[in-house]
Design a protein around this nucleic acid. Structure first.
Length: 875
DNA sequence: ACCGCCGGGTGCC
DNA sequence: ACCGCCGGGTGCC
């Protein structure tokens, strides 16, 4: 950042503070002055209109000059000089600031009266009064007179003023300072009269929830409707006036040019209501040139559910709503209604700005809910981002982060800023509440036809945050700080009902907010049914038990020897193998051929390089994602295995090897890039040693348990579907024959399946038809992606996983948005086995994950690793 | 008449 | 601007 930029920042700061102080100011009094020189300027005002009074110290004729501008900023004239002379010093010394309203007489061609409201900090008010008194200027209508600076609408129509006062009386019984949440409170009631729309099914493959369809219809209507922006009214020609006029009800600014609609708004649904999908549906459905699906009116039901205390407040909402509605209705009368036909030919690309942390969520939802390849998507992030604006603009959807936005702000030639966007979406838009942050400035300045702010925590009890959203939305004149303060902020903070009513009118017009408590026809929008997790102990069959016990004893002996020698990390591959074997034995003996002796012999012979690459790859494929990278302590992004059998993210280990010596961070053994192996995922590895029917060692206790759960479920309700997870695909295979035998139809999903096959399996399972499969066998790898499995409500985890978060995530494929039944999760755990210890370890990991984030593989971590093994092996 | 008055020219700051 | 103001023309009744 250059020095000059810093200076600018500082100036911005002070300006900001001053303007925020304005909100705290009080009205000292009013003064009527003449606005003169009208014929030299083309800015016009009508009766009751607000004007801006701007000092013009550089005026060559009078250094006290005060310019008079209308809302649009066009100059109307000057304050007559003998009054300007009295007022200018107050303004220049920051003792007061001025606001003007032209009550009447605006027809005069040469001059017009203007009511000047003088505001100051309360402490300075007496000095201001004294100063003006000295010059013979008597102020009228100070704070004491209620409604004195009601200005906004007061001047225009006295009938309205009286209505407001009635309203004020009604509202004053409510709590003094209405929070923004109160403003939203009743808006929810309005959604039931809303409409719904299906998304373009050639792109969006998922079924939207009802409230998401409503959000889609609402957003599309906001983007395509030609309705007037909020606070605008149409004034049909009357009398001698033959032109239709448009008036802003906040400022009474009137002009003959129809204001542009506000194409966008605020999607402020609570977290967990699926805003991301709603926006994706919008992007997919409201494309230029597209034919829109029909709008479906939602029947209004259960009106009687209305609660008593809400009724009064609701009237307020309806009043402002009614006004908006009238405005838009008459708007479509006057302009041939072009709604719902997005034109082709303009810009195509939607830019989504989000925090880096939720970027993956967007991508995940995109993969989950849209057909592969149906949208042309790109992520503008990282050093190899697209720098060519034309290329960037050719995508349907571009994702970037706030940090990118902030850094690109400095770059005049940034592709982001050059593109003319069809649509700009700010996710977690509350992040732009700081108006001087670079990301905020950049977001405001980007060139986009439609603008959306998406946020789950909309306006944290602070109307100021709303202001920055107005800036982002380019919603004039509220995007202008002075007008924001004047019409919303100050009335709101001083508890005037006008501020509240206006905010409500604004929000009801441009925002959609539903909370988890919002009810439509008496039902919550998203009411995730409970998830009940049960640990389901399984006694191994006598045969398996015997094999397991022997193996565990052998394994323990081997490991104890390593611990005694201090060679455990060196022999980590064998340790891992032992643990893996034992875990497999908990599923079924057939999955673990051979004995530990073989391994031990191997280990004894080659202390250094013990495993062949093939074996290592096999191991990696089996532990797969169910392992934490010891460097970043998260499940590996692209898991690799070293020749010393340690598992890392590819990124993490590559970086470590680049930077440090050529050593494995875990065992300190020599290690180079060539000693790293990926799993050969492409070819699905089927564990040898079983032929799919439980083969050699009799039946598996886990499979028996699974069947008993399924049988019970089927007896209770045959339509309940069950998802079965295991990390061993061989275990899933083991389940197949018994399932078929017991009359269960099933589908399967595991790593290495083609996208088409996966889709087919998903579709089949989703079906509600009688002969559709009721059991879904999933490997851990397949569960990692954001699958939606809400058609099932039962989950069986055949084996406990290393990583509790991964297990949780897998369950949440079922227990997620759209789930209507209670979810039952059965975690099968072999009694008195390594699995029980694994559960204990999961608890520890949960706690550990909180503390040691971001630490690199250290001595401590290695010790902990040994501790984990000892805990698992009970030695 | 170094005034008053008349009436045309003129017009923000 | 159907004003105020300026400044030139004018000058008893």
């Amino acid at each position: 950042m250059s020095a000059s930029q810093e200076v600018v920042e500082v100036e911005d700061d002070s300006g900001e503070e001053e303007e925020e102080e304005e909100a705290e100011a009080i009205l000292v009094g009013c003064l009527t002055v003449n606005v003169v020189g009208l014929r030299y300027y083309h800015g016009t005002v009508t009766n009751g209109e607000m004007v801006q009074l701007v000092r013009e110290p550089t005026n060559p004729y009078d250094s006290n000059a005060i310019r008079v501008l209308n809302i649009r900023g066009d100059q109307v004239g000057h304050v007559e000089k003998n009054k300007a002379m009295h007022l200018a010093p107050l303004v220049d010394q920051n003792l007061a600031f001025l606001e003007g309203i032209v009550p009447s007489g605006s027809k005069n061609a040469y001059r017009m009266p203007c009511q000047v409201h003088v505001f100051s900090k309360p402490a300075l008010a007496p000095a201001v009064v004294d100063h003006l008194d000295y010059f013979g200027e008597r102020l009228s209508g100070g704070l004491l007179e209620e409604g004195a600076h009601e200005g906004g609408g007061g001047g225009r129509a006295s009938s309205k003023t009286s209505k407001r006062k009635v309203l004020a009386g009604a509202a004053s019984s409510a709590p003094k300072k209405p929070s923004i949440d109160d403003i939203f409170e009743d808006l929810a009631l309005d959604c039931k009269k809303r409409q719904a729309m299906e998304p373009d099914s050639s792109i969006v493959k998922s079924e939207l929830m009802q409230h998401q369809k409503e959000a889609l219809a609402w957003m599309i209507q906001r983007e395509n409707s030609s309705a007037l922006p909020p606070f605008w009214e149409i004034q049909p020609p009357k009398g001698s006036n033959t032109t239709t006029m448009y008036m802003n009800t906040l400022t009474n600014f009137t002009c003959d040019k129809r204001p542009e609609p506000l194409r966008g708004g605020i999607l402020a649904d609570d977290m967990g209501l699926g805003k991301t999908l709603a926006v994706l549906a919008l992007v997919a459905t409201n494309r230029p040139g597209a034919v829109l699906p029909p709008v479906v009116d939602i029947a209004e039901e259960l009106e009687e559910l209305e609660e008593q205390p809400a009724a009064k407040k609701r009237k307020t909402t309806e009043r402002s709503k009614g006004r908006d509605k009238k405005a838009s209705d008459s708007g479509s009368d006057d302009h041939p209604p072009p709604p719902c036909v997005p034109k082709a030919g303009g810009p195509l690309a939607t830019l989504v700005v989000c925090p880096l942390s939720v970027l993956s969520n967007w991508i995940g939802q995109l993969e989950d809910h849209t057909r592969a390849g149906s949208l042309n998507v790109c992520v503008f992030h990282g050093p190899d981002r697209i720098k060519n604006a034309k290329k960037l603009a050719s995508h349907d959807l571009v994702f970037t982060t706030y940090n990118m936005l902030a850094s690109e702000w400095n770059d005049r030639n940034s592709a982001l800023r050059k593109v003319h966007w069809l649509r700009l979406v700010l996710d977690e838009a509350h992040l732009v509440k700081n108006p001087k942050a670079q990301q905020t400035k950049c977001a405001i300045s980007l060139n986009a036809d439609r603008r959306w702010a998406v946020t789950g925590t909309p306006i944290q009890n602070n109307a100021k945050d709303l202001f920055s959203l107005m800036q982002f939305l380019h919603f004039e004149p509220l995007s202008e700080r002075t007008f924001w303060n004047r019409t919303i902020q100050r009335p709101l903070t001083s508890g005037q009902p006008a501020g509240f009513a206006r905010s409500q009118g604004l929000m009801s017009a441009i925002s959609l907010r539903r909370t988890k408590e919002t009810r439509v026809n008496g039902k919550k929008l998203v009411d995730l049914p409970p998830k009940i997790v049960t640990v389901f102990p399984v006694d191994l069959t006598p045969n398996d038990r015997a094999i397991y016990d022997k193996m565990e004893r052998d394994g323990k002996d081997i490991i104890l020897k390593y611990i005694a020698n201090g060679t455990m990390t060196k022999n980590y591959a064998i340790v891992l193998q032992i643990i893996l074997r034992l875990r497999q034995l908990c599923d079924h003996s057939s999955m673990c051929p051979g004995s530990m002796d073989v391994l031990a012999a191997l280990g004894a012979e080659n202390q250094g390089q013990i495993a062949s690459p093939e074996l290592l790859q096999k191991m990696l494929a089996m532990i797969g994602d169910d392992f934490d990278c010891p460097i970043c302590l998260s499940p590996p992004v692209t898991a690799i295995i070293t020749r010393c059998a340690h598992v890392f993210c590819r990124r993490c280990i590559e970086k470590t090897l680049e930077r440090d010596k050529r050593q494995c961070p875990m065992c300190r053994g020599d290690l180079t890039i060539s000693d790293i192996y990926t799993s050969n995922v492409g070819k699905e590895q089927e564990e040898a040693g079983n032929d799919g029917d439980g083969g050699g060692g009799g039946s598996s206790a886990k499979i028996t348990a699974l069947l008993s759960i399924l049988d019970k479920t089927r007896a209770k309700d045959p339509s309940i579907k069950t998802v079965v997870f295991s990390q061993f695909s061989s275990m899933l295979k083991l389940a197949e024959a018994p399932l078929t035998q017991a009359g269960y139809k099933f589908v399967k999903l595991q790593g290495g399946m083609s996208a088409k096959k996966r889709d087919e399996a998903m579709e089949a399972f989703k079906s509600r038809s009688k002969d559709s499969p009721t059991v879904f066998l999933l490997s851990l790898k397949a569960a990692g992606v954001g699958l939606n499995l809400v058609s099932a409500s039962n989950v069986v985890m055949l084996d406990p996983w290393w990583n509790p978060a991964a297990e949780e995530q897998a369950m949440d494929r079922v227990h997620r948005l759209g789930q209507t039944r209670d979810v039952h999760v059965f975690r099968l755990v072999a009694t008195d086995s390594i699995e029980e210890r694994l559960l204990q370890m999961q608890e520890k990991k949960r706690a550990y994950a909180q503390i040691a984030l971001g630490k690199e593989a250290s001595e401590e971590r290695r010790k902990q690793c040994i501790q984990e093994v000892r805990l698992l092996m009970q030695c």
